[in-house]
């Protein structure tokens, strides 16, 4: 019998990755809050989680002249619709971003505690006490 961590930990590992990705997207929005023409991005969590399980498959090259073909990663990012677009074309609403960051970090921490509980469940099983 082998222990499969992927099975034991469930979807939470992928969820953690997507949360990290979202943090990065939100950080980009915050950083570009003063950049003219920047369009605020957001991640569709459900779609991102779905695609997180799909393995990336490349195309094998049988000739030196072949182009290394990697399929485009599925898109789950979308542009936010600005409540109040500004004259310089920037669509970042810093209040919205802050709310999203708070939301994301709470959800991230809950995923971390889910994982923590999974681990303590596993250690309890190992000890057999």
């Amino acid at each position: 019998m082998t222990i499969n961590f992927d099975k034991a930990l469930g979807i939470h590992v992928q969820a953690l990755n997507v949360r990290q990705q979202r943090t990065q997207v939100l950080a980009t929005n915050v950083v570009n809050a003063d950049t003219p023409g920047y369009k605020a991005k957001e991640i569709d969590f459900r779609a991102a989680l779905k695609t997180a399980n799909i393995q990336q498959v490349g195309v094998s090259r049988t000739h030196a002249g072949h182009i290394d073909g990697m399929p485009q990663p599925p898109t789950y990012e979308f542009y936010r619709v600005a409540e109040q677009p500004s004259v310089d074309g920037n669509t970042v609403d810093i209040q919205q971003e802050k709310a999203a960051v708070a939301d994301n970090s709470v959800r991230y921490q809950s995923t971390v505690s889910f994982l923590s509980r999974k681990f303590s469940g596993l250690t309890a099983a190992f000890r057999g006490e």
Binding site: T23, A27, V31, S105, Y108, V112, L115, S116, S120
Partner: peptide
């Protein structure tokens, strides 16, 4: 705002280090 962003991600990272 940028420092806050940094602090948030630092907190998340530290939480992740405490995992398990």
């Amino acid at each position: 705002n940028n420092t806050e962003m940094m602090n948030t991600s630092k907190e998340l990272l530290l939480r992740t280090l405490q995992l398990g």
